[in-house]
């Protein structure tokens, strides 16, 4: 069966760490980093990139438009 694999690219310097993407992600791919960016926000990152299905829900709710989503059909 064909499977969809996704990947997210997050502009960590523009991220404000609001966590809205983290709670929206259906596969728990995203998490807030322990480190902070130059503005002092705990930026969002793909903690579990293998789980990403490329649904783009994180990018659709991201207030600052920092998330870019890619997806590909494999298998």
């Amino acid at each position: 069966m064909a499977k969809i694999k996704g990947a997210v690219v997050i502009d960590r310097e523009r991220c404000k760490g609001c966590e809205v993407c983290v709670v929206t992600c259906p596969t728990q791919t995203l998490a807030l980093a322990v480190e902070v960016n130059a503005k002092g926000y705990h930026y969002s990152y793909a903690a579990n990139p293998d789980a990403c299905i490329g649904c783009a829900n994180c990018a659709v709710v991201c207030p600052d438009g920092v998330i870019t989503v890619y997806k590909v059909k494999v298998g």
């Binding site: 694999k5 996704g6 990947a7 690219v9 523009r14 404000k16 760490g17 609001c18 966590e19 809205v20 926000y41 490329g54 783009a56 990018a59 659709v60 207030p63 600052d64 438009g65 920092v66 998330i67 870019t68 989503v69 890619y70 997806k71 590909v72």
Partner: peptide
């Protein structure tokens, strides 16, 4: 996966690159 042909979502070009002054969230 991260290749232009696989692009699913990117912010609109009409939204400028200025960082918005709004609070997080």
């Amino acid at each position: 996966i991260v290749r232009p042909e696989n692009l699913t979502y990117v912010k609109s070009k009409i939204l400028t690159d200025n960082v918005m002054h709004y609070c997080p969230g």
